[in-house]
Design a protein around this nucleic acid. Structure first.
Lengths: 198, 198
DNA sequence: TTTATTTCCTGACCTGGTTCATTTTGTGGG
DNA sequence: CCCACAAAATGAACCAGGTCAGGAAATAAA
């Protein structure tokens, strides 16, 4: 991986913790670049999630399948986002999610043991992962609140406003299942909007 | 606060990170015990949440009020749990939640600046708060998944099985709003169950 | 460029859960 | 012990969003 390719990743790291040149280099040495084809899985149920992945290019979707066989999207990730089965990775237990590439993608992966080593070795790295976890918790909580307090249409509007890039790139049925509604209902919401505009 | 009173707290800390006697003492010196009367608020919207609180005794409830004036419970906390407005505390922005005591309670509070100092001073403390954040993120995510994949009745049954103590102690309307249903509907679910048992 | 497959749209009907209004039970305070 | 008020239960009408089924577009494969 060339310096240019990973520039966004370096920016990402330094925005969270002001690492020195050397620290960045050490940190970087634990990450491996990987190219993933559309429809390829990087995590599957039963297997333990061994990596945490940063998306350099492309898009992913994490989802579970319920008892009735329905898919429910748990998370999306495009450029500059992280993705994994959080529970599985953090506690090193078998995953319950699928994580699949929605497009041909390029990711940077760190494996669990390396992360542990890094965190143990330097306070700085521990801080970085603490901040990651905090942001993640805050994000999840906003989602819980949105689910509890807003209607299906409001949830869609909020999401579309906040993450327009994701709305453009992911298939509708995936977005619908993320927002907690059927693809049919989301289709209706969208078409209602279209008519208003004209 | 006597050693005996805070024994559960010490256990709690050491279950997460194997602190030394001195470390525990330093950590402890940053916490202040506080008695809170039933119906008293420890966090309110508009004000920044300055503390993170560990419940030694009693019970709390965090909730938001939506545009329509409805309350939605975001979190419960009984003995051995932490509570705050997570977003407000972590980012030091104005709270959106109320946190109120459901019973006369005793809590241990640490304030934001002290926590920052502790985390900066010792790797050990940073690790502790990293673990807290990870657990919190994992918990929230399980809740998101439960909301997406289960019916109202299933959510109640799951919760009742996992947290029987909380179900016994909190008012029904608070539990209903936590589970994302009306108090009337929860009442029906419960009464249906009662009949089956007899 | 044709065919196959996946995604999206649309209409008719259905239901889990809500709303509203009223009654019953519980409970904390004086 | 009683009263005032908060919490829980119950019935009936209603609705946001789901289900089912068929067809139209869009993508991908060959």
């Amino acid at each position: 991986m060339t310096d240019e390719e990973i520039e966004p990743f370096l920016q990402h790291l330094q925005k969270r913790v002001p690492f020195s040149k050397q620290e960045l280099e050490e940190l970087l040495s634990y990450f491996r670049e990987k190219k993933i084809k559309k429809r390829q899985f990087i995590i599957q149920p039963e297997f333990v999630a061994r990596h945490r992945s940063y998306v350099l290019e492309g898009a992913f979707r994490a989802y579970v399948i319920d008892d009735g066989g329905e898919e429910h999207t748990i998370q999306f990730a495009i450029e500059d986002w992280w993705i994994s089965d959080y529970n599985s990775y953090v506690y090193q237990t078998p995953a319950t999610m699928f994580v699949v590439a929605l497009e041909d993608s390029v990711i940077l992966q760190i494996d669990y043991d390396s992360e542990q080593k890094l965190k143990a070795a330097h306070h700085r790295y521990e801080t970085f992962f603490r901040i990651m976890a905090e942001r993640s918790a805050a994000y999840q909580q906003r989602r819980v609140i949105s689910n509890l307090t807003r209607t299906a249409e409001e949830r869609y509007n909020d999401f579309a406003e906040r993450y327009p890039l994701i709305v453009q790139r992911v298939p509708q049925y995936a977005l619908a299942s993320y927002l907690g509604m059927t693809t049919e209902f989301l289709s209706r919401i969208r078409n209602k909007k279209m008519k208003k505009k004209s």
